[in-house]
């Protein structure tokens, strides 16, 4: 790997790691995150079996 490759890899991986760390930090820090933060697969779809 050349210098440009190292720079690209470190910047790319570093940027993504910083972003995901920031997001998880905010989720963990938010007092009521579990009450009003949701992921698509967790969302209750209120289906009625009629």
């Amino acid at each position: 790997m050349n210098l440009a490759g190292w720079i690209v890899m470190i910047l790319s991986v570093g940027f993504v790691l910083c972003l995901v760390t920031f997001c998880f930090y905010r989720v963990l820090r938010t007092p009521k995150s579990t009450e009003h933060m949701h992921a698509p697969l967790e969302i209750d779809t209120h289906d009625v079996d009629t």
């Binding site: 993504v16 997001c23 938010t30 009003h36 992921a39 698509p40 697969l41 209120h46």
Partner: peptide
Amino acid sequence: YASYLRKNDDVVLSALTASA
């Protein structure tokens, strides 16, 4: 999926965290 959220449920951090 987002249509099942309540009016004051967060969308910004949720979407950003899923993307990240």
